[in-house]
Design a binder for these strands. Sequence first.
DNA 1: CGCTTCGTTCATTATATTTTGAACAATCTG
DNA 2: CAGATTGTTCAAAATATAATGAACGAAGCG
Lengths: 160, 160
Amino acid sequence: MSPALSELEKEVVEIFVRIAGVLSLPRSVGELYGILFISPEPMCIDDLMLKLKISKGSTSQGLKILRSFGAVNPVYVAGDRRDFYAAEAELRKIVAGFANEQIRPHLDNGKARMARIEGLIDAEEAGRKEFIAERIDRLQGWQKRAGSLLPFALNFIKPE
Amino acid sequence: MSPALSELEKEVVEIFVRIAGVLSLPRSVGELYGILFISPEPMCIDDLMLKLKISKGSTSQGLKILRSFGAVNPVYVAGDRRDFYAAEAELRKIVAGFANEQIRPHLDNGKARMARIEGLIDAEEAGRKEFIAERIDRLQGWQKRAGSLLPFALNFIKPE
DNA sequence: CGCTTCGTTCATTATATTTTGAACAATCTG
DNA sequence: CAGATTGTTCAAAATATAATGAACGAAGCG
């Protein structure tokens, strides 16, 4: 049961590989989530590296990333010392985890930078100053909207 | 006026470099948009490569990308044969252009792949089939939501 | 026309990212 | 405790991505 991905598995994995790309995550992370998503049974590192033909290192690191935002959950398997995982299938949870883990820091950083920029406007020469102030204002508007889009997108996903 | 970025320019450019990263666009694209965004005057390729210290090739390619989704507009400058550009400052337009140009194709591709996957479910063995059908259903739900999120996000930006 | 200027293209080079695999630490097992 | 097994880490290798710059074609200009 381990080797050779079925046609269906390949298709599903490709979907998540593509998503991983969009999210700037390594290909292997997409592969791992994809195969777990479509697998009825939880899987351990050995299963995964055999199935996907990737190294143990990649597998371990990939699972670490997936765990970091809750895309994957540990599953206890009786009588087996190895760690097993199953894909988290509630989109809401994954998105929330990803937002907190990977997006929030960027937003915070951006806010800090905007504050710094505010202070630099006054130093501009008279002609440019007006224009620049307008642009910075605009930028701040965008930033604010980006910040409020996230909580909003979360609501967009069915609360169930 | 050409060489050496001011502190403010550096900060603004860094913001857009970061955004470019999130959108999987080359760093130089972020730099170009950033410097145009904060420049009161339209700029030509020479101005840009001098200011940002990047090659002519990068500048040309970067502008091509920015044009492709309307993040930058050509500006006619009397008595100068060169092409000048100014940053498009209406977020709505940029997002719409980016969505059409870079996101829509992915969604279309995804839809096609989902159709293909649908047909593969029946071939699964009895035990797995139930689970797999549930997962594919779920995936389809996600896909659908992703498709409707985009138009919705566009509305989220003030029509002005 | 011939000369110049301008923008694009694309093969090469440089850089950044990902994967690998061996070394290691931790935990179990008899 | 000695020997195995499991997961992690990290330097090195492989791969993917972006930047460079020279060659080119297409206008403008005298």
